[in-house]
Amino acid sequence: MNRLFGTHYAVKLDVFEGPMDLLVHLVIKNDMDILDIPIALITEQYMAYLELLQGLDIEFAGDFLLMASTLTHIKSRMLLPPAEGEDEEDPRMEIARPLLEYLRMKRASEWLGKQEVLGTTTFIHQEPPSQGGSTPQETQPRDTDAIEADLMDLVNAFKDLMASRYQEHTVDFSTEALSVSERIEEIADRLARKGSILFTDLFHPRESKPELVVTFLAILEMAKQGRLRIMQHVQSGIIRIFSPMPEWPAHEEAVSHAPSHS
């Protein structure tokens, strides 16, 4: 069977973004009414496609299998007589509804693809490269790039930090007086001077493990008391600690032209 599908075929397979895309294709190809899909036929063709992928040793995502099971399930429910008295919905709606929704989005994405995109067919007056570096380049206000980090983000960051610094497990029995409250004052001091500090910079490279833990506890305690804000950069995942009063530079527009607005 595989002999039928030459290599030229394999190249075309990526036409389908996912199971919905494939289903839409089958519906159109067979000129089916989405609200009245011959479920046996579409299931058969869908399965044939999956078989084909397997035959070609192409790995397909679990999403395709999930859809296969949905189709088979609908098909089996169609065989059952409707429950008496109850006005049961056509089982095929389970697939018809997402298909309609998907078609809407497909239309929308086609429309987006046809738009005259700035920088391709239309252009704007360009500013010369800024000399003083004072012109903000960001299209978005800064705070959209950072979000409040939650506890899990913080714990993960700490875990990574510990893992990168302590591969071997040594036990140190020397007693040291480590105080969380002293550490809090230290951090508060540094924050007051700098405004913001990278999470990783709060941990000194030569500090012992208990010291790192104390620092971490201090950060947690301060966050609880509202003495600092922990923000995470959306793209890079880098965590930065800020003093409680936000001192964002004014928005791009506000910097160059006018007083800030709400």
Binding site: K12, V15, V24, K29, L52, L103, K106, R107
Partner: peptide, 25 residues
């Protein structure tokens, strides 16, 4: 534009190539 304005429920355009030609029922 709303997807309806874009003709979401009309017959959708077929992909340029027909990759499923091989397996007619």
């Amino acid at each position: 534009p709303s997807p309806e304005e874009l003709g979401a429920l009309d017959t959708p355009t077929l992909s340029p190539s027909d990759p499923l030609k091989v397996r007619e029922p």
